[in-house]
Amino acid sequence: MKIEEIKHPELKNHINMIYMHSENQNQDAIDKTENEIREYIKDKEFIISVEDSKPVKIPYANDGEYLVPIFTDEAEYINGMQYFSLNVMDENKEYVIEKLDNFKKLKEDPNFLGYIVNIARVSYIINISLL
């Protein structure tokens, strides 16, 4: 699959719905939408930034915890790399197009908090309970 073929408008819609449900404090709707996200990401491929064939890790807090950025389309990836360059984190970065379950070892790492969608805007964190 080519980078320009990766598009996830449905996931973006789910993310927007989570924010709306959060503002309305509707936990049942949040849970339902999270289940829809869980089902959606099972068989979809995403753009994942890598370095030396390993996913790029973004430190989160000071205790070794981290997130792995993923991108839902080419424009998001380009914006994310621009964000990385502003923070001097873009050197030697490439991308792969993979399903999230191809990085199963991440799930076993207690410091892995999940995948961050669209790091340039800090859109949404897919936590490990959804994987």
Rank of each mutant, 00 (worst) to 15 (best):
P59T: 07
Y60A: 12
G114H: 02
E94K: 14
N16W: 00
I30S: 04
S22F: 02
V122G: 09
Y66G: 12
D63R: 07
A120W: 03
E10M: 10
D31G: 12
I78Q: 08
F112L: 07
V50G: 08
R121K: 08
D52M: 15
N16S: 15
Q25Y: 08
I116A: 06
I78L: 02
S53G: 07
D28K: 05
K93P: 12
V68F: 04
E94R: 06
L86S: 09
E94A: 04
P69L: 15
E34R: 00
Q25V: 03
L106V: 09
Y95E: 13
E91Q: 15
K54Y: 15
M81S: 12
D63F: 06
E91M: 12
M17L: 14
A29S: 02
S123N: 12
K44F: 09
H14D: 02
K57D: 10
V122L: 09
N35F: 05
R38L: 02
M89R: 07
A120L: 03
E65V: 04
N127H: 09
E36C: 04
Y124N: 14
F71G: 10
P69C: 09
F84L: 14
I6R: 03
T33N: 05
A29W: 00
I48T: 14
S49C: 14
V96H: 03
K12P: 00
K57F: 02
E36F: 02
E76P: 08
P9D: 06
I126C: 03
E94Y: 10
V56L: 15
Y60M: 01
N79Y: 12
N26F: 01
P110R: 05
P9C: 10
Q27I: 01
G64Q: 13
I6T: 13
G64L: 03
K32G: 01
L100G: 05
T72Q: 08
H8I: 01
A61F: 11
N26T: 06
I15Y: 01
N118K: 12
N111F: 13
Y83W: 12
Q25N: 14
I15G: 00
I48E: 02
Y66D: 11
N111S: 11
M81D: 11
I30L: 03
T72K: 07
K99R: 11
N13C: 13
E98V: 08
D90E: 14
N92G: 15
Q82W: 04
S53Q: 06
L100H: 08
P55E: 04
G114W: 01
K57M: 14
N16T: 04
R121H: 12
I37V: 10
L113Q: 09
E45Q: 13
D109R: 08
E51A: 12
L113R: 10
N24Y: 00
M17A: 14
L113P: 05
Y124M: 09
K57A: 09
K44D: 09
K7W: 05
Y124G: 04
K104S: 10
N111Q: 13
E94H: 11
I18D: 01
I41P: 03
N35D: 14
R38E: 13
Y115F: 15
D28G: 11
I125E: 07
L113D: 08
K7H: 10
N26S: 11
H8C: 07
N127E: 08
L11N: 04
E74Y: 09
I6S: 07
E94L: 07
K12E: 15
V68P: 04
D63T: 12
N102P: 06
N102L: 05
A61T: 09
F46C: 05
